[in-house]
Design a protein around this nucleic acid. Structure first.
Lengths: 114, 114
DNA sequence: TCTACAGTTCGATAATCCTGGAAACATCGG
DNA sequence: CCGATGTTTCCAGGATTATCGAACTGTAGA
């Protein structure tokens, strides 16, 4: 993940409304949610919702698809995984302090328990 | 890590200069670097450097100490670890997609090799 | 084709952030 | 005490981001 992409993803998440939006979509899973429902739950007017969700979409954090007359947004985990990997590799104190987490590659899928 | 703190940390990192600054300090380790050296390396004027480094400092990502007449800044990993943990817990698709990484708590320090 | 509905785009305003020079503050050496 | 050095604070500007109503686009059903 290159630097501009990292900055873009960080900026996309660095807003209370958008972070709440993204978490809502993660919790919801692959089915996603239509724009209107998201706007309702967040309590923001439609045009503001579009503004924020597009921000996440441009950063690649959220996917968009049309179903009938509604637009469904869903979390796209690839960029988030890339972001966390980048932060873990470049921004955790390697060797100096205890690292925060281990990239999934290193642990042979011994998780699913958390 | 609560939401405002998460947003603040994300916002602090969501700028090319500040991300470069933070990575420089991580690479440097606990010794840290004086403000002047950082400004030189980043190619920003002193007042701009202060602006950005204070931003990181307010977010708790960077510590400050005085040595003689210089102010030394060093990466403080606690907040970064907390940030990554928060993102991993709340923003990775639990169960839906392959997770990006495993919190260090779960792996009995089987690292130090990476 | 007309109407209703779901979202987006447009436009104007407000708020926030960024930049960098100049002045002020703090520390050290003489 | 004075000058030199390192850094911050202050300030003004410019740039970017956020908010939200109103108008527009696209889709579905009668």
């Amino acid at each position: 993940m290159d630097i501009p992409q990292t900055v873009q993803a960080l900026a996309a998440l660095a807003h209370e409304t958008r972070l709440a939006l993204y978490r809502m979509l993660v919790e919801r899973g692959p089915d996603g949610l239509p724009a209107g429902v998201i706007a309702d739950r967040l309590g923001v007017p439609p045009s503001s919702l579009t503004f924020h969700v597009q921000h996440l979409h441009r950063a690649g954090l959220v996917s968009q698809r049309r179903v009938g007359r509604q637009l469904i947004y869903a979390a796209d985990y690839a960029v988030m995984n890339g972001l966390i990997a980048t932060l873990t590799e470049n921004c955790c104190g390697r060797g100096t302090a205890q690292p925060c987490c281990v990239p999934a590659d290193l642990t042979q899928s011994t998780l699913q328990s958390a």
